[in-house]
Design a protein around this nucleic acid. Structure first.
Lengths: 213, 213
DNA sequence: TAGATTGTTAATCGATTAACAATC
DNA sequence: TAGATTGTTAATCGATTAACAATC
């Protein structure tokens, strides 16, 4: 079955949230839900929910609704959770450690195969059972293990250089925590940003615009 | 001067990025820029940039462009960076520690006034010079210090209960790292989410939809 | 003054919502 | 069968882009 094309990013970005809510429903023992009921719980319109799902073919049944378990599974497979990704973490500072641990615990799709840092004092440390390697060994490591995804947890100044390496070494996708603009500078890479500062600033705006409406 | 109202969230969310790029330009010694040139550097259209700024009144000059320093300052003041926010961090696990340190170093707008945890072994630890307090003392702390912002770094299961407390204790805004849906359950709160799992999943989709277009 | 570039109005494009025939 | 609810088409709404008069 060929993958559905041309689904807009707005739709895609809602998929993880659907996945999460359906998981919660399942945990509550609910195994059937209508778009109406789901829309109430999620704060969306029923129309949007049906539109979203129909982008991928539609998984419901008239007069009945959706089967929670099956729908969650479909969404998981749309997202591609079944395909494991060999993942490396670049930067073993506070953030790198936190993310390594988190991913190991919660995101089985992303299998952490290596953690890299260039700071002597950090190299050799164990994080969730994975040793921190010297960044100098990145190239040889990639040529052996072939990771596909990198998580960027380095300081801004180091980001461009490391991206150049990653790009050459066959990394296809980057989860970027730095404020270096990976997508702009490496258009061939798939990028998802987590810009913590931007989120704080957006919150800041919301606080200050309080009561203006 | 009355704040401009009704600016859409899409526009707002671009402001931190403008702020960042203008900072970079300033650091490079560039002090004048046209919407055209800025659009090239940022991967946007010049039209969008002018539209965005004109939401707040327009800060340029025909035939000249924008003054980088002045524009950055205007954007900072639109976001509200000058108004300090007393901020508490809830949860002093890996993530809480990482965020505390990060905010202390980079986001002077958010002044970390307290860190809370309920785990005995964590209470009393120092993080960037701030002691981890017992969550039981949250109420008395808030009645004394009046923090306005909370950063949620607790496990999912603890989130609802803590939000109920925060809401009562006068917290106006939450930066939410949990996948508990704060905005849905506490509509009076201003919320900004950082859903790490969602970002990984979106990246996952992008990887798997590779070559479909 | 002539050239450059803004701020804004109009046109286009895309995303969300509403409506409804199809059907379980 | 009657009621419920889907998937989809049409209508609306909002955001982005294009165009251009105003003006530095």
């Amino acid at each position: 079955m060929s993958k559905t094309r041309n689904v807009s990013l707005s739709v895609i970005k809602r998929m993880p949230r659907y996945y999460r809510f359906l998981g919660d429903l399942k945990a509550q023992g609910i195994n059937r839900i209508s778009s109406k009921e789901l829309s109430n719980r999620m704060g969306l319109t029923a129309s949007q929910i049906r539109q979203d799902f129909s982008c991928f073919g539609g998984f419901g049944q008239q007069g009945y609704g959706y089967n929670v378990t099956q729908l969650q599974q479909e969404i998981g497979s749309i997202i591609g959770l079944d395909n494991k990704q060999r993942t490396i973490i670049i930067g073993a500072g506070n953030l790198g450690k936190t993310i390594a641990t988190h991913v190991k615990r919660e995101l089985s799709t992303f299998e952490i195969v290596g953690i890299f840092d260039r700071k002597e004092s950090t190299i050799g440390q164990m994080i969730s059972g994975i040793p921190v390697r010297n960044s100098d060994t990145l190239e040889e490591f990639c040529k052996e293990v072939f990771p596909t995804v990198a998580v960027l947890c380095v300081p801004f100044d180091a980001a461009r250089e490391i991206c150049e390496k990653l790009s050459v070494l066959g990394i296809k996708a980057v989860l970027n925590f730095t404020h270096f603009d990976v997508a702009l500078n490496f258009p061939e890479m798939k990028v998802e940003n987590i810009h913590i500062n931007d989120s704080f600033m957006t919150l800041c705006y919301k606080i200050n615009s309080d009561g203006d409406e």
